[in-house]
Nucleic acid binder design. Structure first.
Length: 525
RNA sequence: GUCCCCGUCGUCUAGCCUGGCCUAGGACAUCGCCCUUUCACGGCGGUAACACGGGUUCAAAUCCCGUCGGGGACGCCA
């Protein structure tokens, strides 16, 4: 553990923060950052601060704020401690940011730049060149600067990055180690925009200092920004916090996950709606870029809190192995609410990282029947089935080993819930190495047997096996026609348990229908 | 373009700091076999990786240099 930092002394509690900007839905990369921060705080008995970095009025939306809270709420739904201990909005702290900026200015470490802002954002891509500062603005005398400001000329406030003497900016990252950069490679970044609003760098550092954040755990895309942040902290006389940068989560194409390019698969709510258990999703995310180093993979939240440490974090980017084809590449998902409607359509099992699916299935199998049943019930009901909790509890053990996503209950157990089986091909009723006559015999005999036998696993087992013997067919040949008759398909849970749950009445009715189907096959087929 | 970061099976990773125990371990996926009334679960086994090239060393996945490849940051966005 990297220690000896002032803010980690026993006196002051460890404080971390998660600071999303509400410009879109909560995506999986942000979710992982949130989880790592939370885990680190809980592991060390520290506090977690949630701060909405909403200084970009142009791009912030309430829908986005709602979506982020929705995602965080789901992630933390099973936790016995809150997802955060304190909550702030940057937009309410702008006075502090401005004061900080002017303090830096008064020290001569920032200057006014009256150069008009670049119009349009066309030049943001690639062809940037190496702009470092506008000499005329940087060298403007204080008197001249004051005069023009007093005259009402708009300006941005820029940090005066030291440009002489081969000065170096450095810090130690808990993940990436010693980081050093020549100040001459850092541009004179803006602190205040010409409308007086703070920039991200300024607001973030001013708040981190004010909120006494001890550790900043965030994505590696901020690694090079950190040099600027060190400069700000030093200019305001604050000891910088400890930094830990996380390797990026990338798409199978190797690029940074993006809402716009990769669509709903990167949205947290897509996983929720598809039937992921939040604890399984968290488990999956933790394994991306972090390892307990003891080959454990299926881990509960308490276990994760127990062994989480910054030392276990990797330095190389991790691929979230979802299927690229999920969304047409040129389709833009404009708003969270609009994306919402498409999630269910786009998110099939094929969409997700197979390991996430496996972990989810593992966690599902680890749930008690009561717990799993309670989670399944609302899904089944939302799909329009009128099912009692008692019935759900009976069905749950039969499908627990057979579903990977909670929503799979709808396809795995549908025949327990419907009154009328959907149409199926009567040919399915014919057993392996058998013919229609055999199927007919089996169904006829089954009807007789099942009319009398007690509907419990063992009696059903004995009676049906005995019947198979009498008919001179194999057990499997006996069971398949019955299975298809009652389930409407070949792949289904074990037969005796299934019949027990279905009950005599439904079973006999469906066998009756199957027999009719065999006699008068549907005209269309 | 400039600066920064990264590079172990298809994917997530262990091992790297403190060279030898590495004929490189685990997991997912995949293939095969077993269990079995179907499916699934479970069990067993197979295929599969140290980016490349130079050093240093008795010995290199591990240390050094270079090359190549990938990613990120460079905005009055965050």
């Amino acid at each position: 553990m990297p220690e000896s930092h002032p803010s980690t002394s026993p006196k002051s509690k460890l404080r971390v923060r998660f600071a999303p900007s509400p410009t879109g839905f909560l995506h999986v990369g942000s979710a992982r950052t949130f989880i790592f921060n939370w885990l680190y705080a809980r592991h060390n008995g520290g506090n977690m601060i949630l701060r909405l970095d909403d200084t970009d009025v142009e791009r912030n939306t309430q829908a986005s704020v709602d979506s982020i809270f929705e995602g965080l709420k789901w992630l933390s739904s099973g936790w016995d401690t809150p997802g955060w201990d304190e909550l702030y909005k940057q937009s309410e702290r702008i006075d502090l940011h401005r004061r900080t900026a002017w303090t830096i200015f008064e020290k001569g470490l920032a200057y006014r730049d009256f150069t008009p802002a670049h119009t349009g954002d066309a030049e943001k891509s690639g062809s940037q060149g190496t702009w470092l500062f506008n000499p005329g603005a940087r060298e403007l005398s204080r008197a001249e600067s004051d005069r023009r400001a007093a005259a009402g000329e708009p300006f941005a406030l820029r940090f005066r990055v030291p440009r002489e003497g081969g000065q170096v900016v450095q810090f130690t990252d808990a993940v990436y180690g010693e980081q050093v950069k020549f100040a001459t490679d850092i541009e004179d970044f803006a602190l205040l925009r010409s409308d007086g609003m703070p920039t991200y760098h300024l607001a973030s550092c001013a708040d981190d200092a004010d909120l006494r954040i001890s550790h900043i755990i965030r994505g590696q895309d901020h690694l090079t920004n950190t040099f600027k942040h060190i400069l700000i902290f030093e200019a305001t006389g604050v000891t910088p916090p400890q930094f830990a940068h996380l390797p990026l989560l990338v798409a199978p194409d190797g690029t940074k996950l993006s809402k716009r390019r990769h669509g709903p698969v990167v949205s947290v709510t897509t996983y929720r709606d598809a039937g992921f258990l939040s604890e399984a999703f968290i488990n999956f995310l933790c394994l991306l870029g972090w390892s307990p180093k003891d080959n454990r993979e299926n881990m509960s939240l308490p276990e994760l809190i127990e062994c989480f440490s910054l030392e276990g974090i990797n330095r190389s980017n991790a691929v979230v192995n979802f299927k690229e084809s999920a969304a047409p590449p040129d389709v833009v998902i404009p708003t969270p609410s609009e994306a919402q409607g498409r999630n269910l359509l786009l998110a099939s099992e094929e969409t997700f990282d197979p390991k996430a699916l496996w972990l989810n299935a593992e966690h599902i199998r680890g749930l008690s029947v009561e717990d799993l049943s309670a989670r399944l019930l609302p899904i089944v009901r939302a799909a329009g089935f009128n099912v009692t909790p008692e019935k759900m509890q009976q069905v749950t053990p039969l499908i627990r080993e057979r579903i990977k996503l909670l929503r799979d209950v709808l396809t795995a157990a549908d025949f327990f819930f419907v009154d009328q089986l959907p149409p199926y091909d009567p040919a399915e009723l014919i057993p392996q190495k058998g013919d229609a006559a055999m199927a007919m015999n089996v169904l006829t005999r089954a009807r007789e047997v099942l009319a009398k036998v007690e509907f419990k696993h063992d009696p059903l087992d004995q009676a049906l096996r005995a019947a198979a013997q009498e008919l001179g067919v194999k057990a499997g040949q006996m069971f398949q026609p019955i299975r298809v008759a009652v389930c409407g398909r070949k792949n289904a849970p074990p037969l005796f348990e299934t019949l027990e749950v279905l009950g005599r009445e439904t079973t006999l009715a469906r066998i009756e229908q199957a027999a009719e189907k065999m006699q008068w096959p549907a005209p269309s087929s």
